[in-house]
Design a protein around this nucleic acid. Structure first.
Length: 366
DNA sequence: AACACCGTCAACCGCCGCAGG
DNA sequence: TCCTGCGGCGGTTGACGGTGT
């Protein structure tokens, strides 16, 4: 039985023939598609209007890209899905020439399996506890969830949760501040060395600039995300989404798990672009290629081990549009004024073996 | 060769929100 | 306020081709 919209007529279903495609293309190019329900009649097709719409949008539209997804597209899908969940139409908007159906199929048939193989829950992007498919099979992670982990950073990490806040007051520069628990001064790792060399060029995107400020020149370094140049509420929201991303797990494509939707060009930016920029850093360009690659691989490996969950977040002093945002709330993109938010970051037991000093130093260096 | 199994993907189904009567 | 039609969306199905046994 056809859809109720066209149940009166005899309606063909199933795959479209080339002849039908031709009729539909001819119809749309000459008449447009003001009303899909009238298209079948106009085109001389024994199809439901919905079926015509779907065929056009998913297959016949001239601006479709076709072909397999590139690594870059895959990366965008994973990163945006981390934020938006199964909102395929929204995700597809970040991929010119791709349809929601295409993205959904690609996710279900390919990406989902890849994430699971990496030990990641495809729904939450968090590491699956006790996953036997964890991407790290060497190193200290004999059991990443082991509470008896002797790593001293484990104790350090247990001092969390950390609280940090966003103040988006229009009159004052506003920052997301996140106190760290570690000193950077004793960190002599190559990662730290590389990362703490100040990049003279600030982040070109003012909506999600982040930088390090070591206020009192002591151990209390802070990660700061600058909201002050946000030109609109929408920009603030995008920044918020980026901080929401803190809850996300890292992935190969987005090792730190940090990123932001850029409202200006509509695309997602992973902060891990910085890692690649880093590889072009002047301190690294003179090194032999192999050494650079090793160094980058090491950074990627370490960053993949970094993860923090945001367990709870709420606006504690909102304006007209007070509302709470909870984990997995699909209304994150809804319109609200962000004045002040408080986040609580909870430690994840399973990451206790991580050298958090390295992870923090990466974040703090930006 | 025959069959089972599996992955892919076009297409469908049911639901929702919205607009107009 | 209710009803109806429509576009849009996400979940699901099933045809089809490739691969393994």
């Amino acid at each position: 039985m056809g859809h109720h919209c066209c149940s009166k007529q005899k309606v063909k279903r199933g795959l479209w023939s080339p002849e039908e495609d031709e009729k539909l293309i001819k119809c749309i190019t000459t008449h447009g598609h003001g009303c899909w329900s009238s298209v079948p009649k106009l085109a001389g097709l024994q199809r439901c209007g919905k079926s015509c719409r779907l065929r056009w949008i998913n297959y016949l539209r001239p601006d479709l890209k076709r072909g397999s997804f590139s690594a870059q597209e895959e990366r965008v899908i994973i990163d945006v899905h981390r934020i938006l969940g199964n909102r395929w139409a929204q995700i597809a908007k970040h991929l010119p020439g791709r349809t929601d159906n295409e993205v959904k199929n690609f996710w279900n048939s390919c990406i989902k399996k890849k994430l699971i193989a990496q030990g990641l829950d495809p729904r939450t992007h968090n590491l699956i506890p006790n996953s036997h498919h964890h991407h790290l099979t060497n190193s200290s992670s004999t059991n990443a969830c082991n509470n008896d982990n002797p790593n001293p950073h484990h104790q350090l990490f247990q001092q969390l949760p950390l609280k940090f806040s966003i103040n988006n007051n229009n009159n004052n520069p506003s920052f997301l501040t996140m106190p760290t628990t570690t000193t950077l001064t004793h960190d002599t790792s190559p990662l730290h060395e590389a990362l703490t060399n100040q990049n003279p060029n600030p982040n070109p995107n003012p909506n999600w600039v982040s930088s390090v400020k070591d206020h009192d020149q002591t151990s209390q370094a802070q990660l700061m995300i600058d909201f002050s140049s946000s030109s609109s509420t929408r920009s603030s929201i995008d920044s918020t989404i980026s901080t929401n991303n803190v809850k996300s797990s890292s992935s190969m494509n987005n090792p730190s798990g940090f990123g932001a939707l850029d409202d200006q060009n509509g695309f997602y930016h992973s902060f891990d672009d910085d890692v690649h920029q880093l590889n072009r850093h002047e301190d690294l360009v003179d090194q032999p290629l192999q050494q650079q690659q090793q160094q980058q691989q090491m950074m990627m490996r370490e960053l993949m081990e970094f993860n923090i969950n945001v367990e709870e977040k709420n606006i504690i002093n909102g304006s007209d549009h007070d509302q709470c945002i909870h984990r997995d709330d699909s209304s994150l993109t809804s319109n609200f004024d962000l004045d002040f938010m408080e986040f609580t970051m909870m430690p994840c037991e399973m990451y206790s073996h991580i050298d958090h000093q390295l992870a923090w130093s990466y974040i703090n260096s930006r």
